[in-house]
């Protein structure tokens, strides 16, 4: 079942065309990545979906009604003045859930996210990886049908990023959240996705759609030749893109 589809979506920001006739869809329980060069307008797609940018041309349709998206921004955007537990319940609070009930909903998930012992800590007391896990849990807890992840591991150091990706793959295999991931990291896209859309430079068009049929788990073991081939193919598309314009 298709959870989300964009048809012929174009966006102008001021006089700059940012998105040009974007077509993409995400199926229920599918992990889809949007891969593109920096500044291509990947994040604009998310801003469109969360309502920060109004739709100009084209159509967006979702299987469920409004409020189907939970958004995880690039930086964790944890509120430094709130303890972790209160950051986690923010989305539920906004929905009007009482604080106590919100905490009850979050509690059973804490262990899987490695946050059980840190609920009363402030974000500044946590490591980058833990903050990112908290930001992800804050997203999941909202109970929306589609998770939008905007370069969730981009700000982490290489080692932490690999650890987080491996951990995330585990969690995803257990929960199968319908996920749309924006990234410019080819390896990350191949490691996590069922399908990958490659965007061109600005104005962004979909220039390739690649299915990743590699069995999971893919991380925490030597990369398969199949993964290597797809990575090479994606890199070539991307490099060709950037070369074309410079």
């Amino acid at each position: 079942m298709t959870a989300l589809s964009l048809k012929d979506v174009s966006i102008m920001l001021g006089d700059t065309p940012v998105l040009e006739s974007i077509n993409l869809h995400v199926k229920q329980g599918e992990f889809v990545s949007i891969l593109g060069p920096s500044g291509a307008g990947k994040s604009t797609i998310f801003r469109l979906l969360t309502g920060a940018v109004p739709l100009q041309t084209g159509t967006i349709s979702c299987a469920s009604h409004e409020d189907s998206f939970a958004f995880m921004p690039q930086r964790d955007a944890l509120m430094p003045w709130r303890r972790i537990i209160d950051n986690l319940t923010l989305g539920l609070e906004v929905q009007g859930v009482a604080r106590k009930d919100a905490r009850t909903q979050v509690m059973p998930l804490l262990a899987d996210f490695g946050l059980a012992d840190f609920t009363t800590h402030f974000p500044a007391q946590l490591s980058g990886g833990m903050r990112q896990r908290a930001a992800l849990l804050r997203t999941i807890v909202q109970g929306r049908s589609i998770q939008l992840l905007d370069e969730p591991f981009g700000a982490l150091d290489a080692l932490t990023r690999t650890q987080m990706q491996t951990w995330f793959e585990d969690r995803w295999r257990a929960a199968r959240w319908t996920t749309l991931l924006v990234t410019h990291d080819v390896r990350e896209a191949v490691a996590l996705s069922d399908r990958i859309y490659v965007l061109s430079q600005r104005p962004a068009r979909v220039i390739a759609e690649i299915i990743v049929p590699i069995p999971r788990p893919r991380l925490g073991r030597p990369p398969s030749t199949q993964a290597h081939d797809i990575e090479t193919q994606l890199l070539e598309i991307l490099l060709h893109q950037t070369g074309e314009r410079s």
């Binding site: 801003r47 969360t50 309502g51 920060a52 939970a70 958004f71 955007a77 509120m79 923010l90």
Partner: peptide, 22 residues
Amino acid sequence: DPEIEDLMRSMGATRGQIFRAA
């Protein structure tokens, strides 16, 4: 932080909620 405001808006927060919480 504009990212915190964007985040709250993505959660469907009203202007009043954003003011109080952020």
